[in-house]
């Protein structure tokens, strides 16, 4: 409790479903014929994982990780409970905004909110690119 690992664990716990919801359906759809073919061509399991499986799901994973990031940055309740909310040590930006708001430091609060908004725009851009690539891969069109 009240430590950096606790924040990570709490965040992973609430966010992991976002990654798996992106990756698992894609893995199902692709099936394992590519992996099996690679095996008949002489490839060992680790090589197959890095050259075939990971490459096939790369964009779905990126999409999921970005969603996770967005989710984690905005996480308040779970992080507040486990982090202890100690400034500069276990205080996330979102918690910092919350603290500033409660202490009537609106200037600091707005700076934090602006930073958060910039990060969100960045995340949205990454998601947009990832989604575009993903759709292209799934539907096989080459726009």
């Amino acid at each position: 409790m009240f430590s950096y690992p606790a924040i990570v664990m709490a965040s992973v716990f609430v966010s992991l479903p976002l990654v798996s919801r992106q990756v698992i359906p894609l893995l199902r759809e692709i099936g394992d014929h590519q992996e099996q073919t690679a095996a008949t061509l002489g490839a060992k399991p680790t090589r197959i994982f890095f050259t075939i499986t990971l490459r096939s799901i790369a964009w779905a994973a990126a999409y999921g990780v970005t969603l996770t990031l967005a989710r984690v940055i905005g996480e308040y309740g779970a992080v507040l409970i486990v982090s202890g909310n100690i400034a500069l040590i276990t205080q996330t930006l979102t918690l910092n905004i919350g603290a500033n708001f409660e202490n009537f430091n609106s200037y600091q609060g707005f700076v934090g909110a602006l930073l958060l908004a910039l990060v969100s725009v960045l995340a949205l851009t990454v998601i947009g690119v990832a989604r575009h690539r993903l759709e292209r891969k799934r539907h096989g069109s080459f726009v």
Binding site: I30, H33, Q36, T37, S56
Partner: peptide, 9 residues
């Protein structure tokens, strides 16, 4: 394989 299992990437 029947679906040819091309390495899509």
């Amino acid at each position: 394989f029947q679906d040819y299992a091309p390495f899509r990437h």
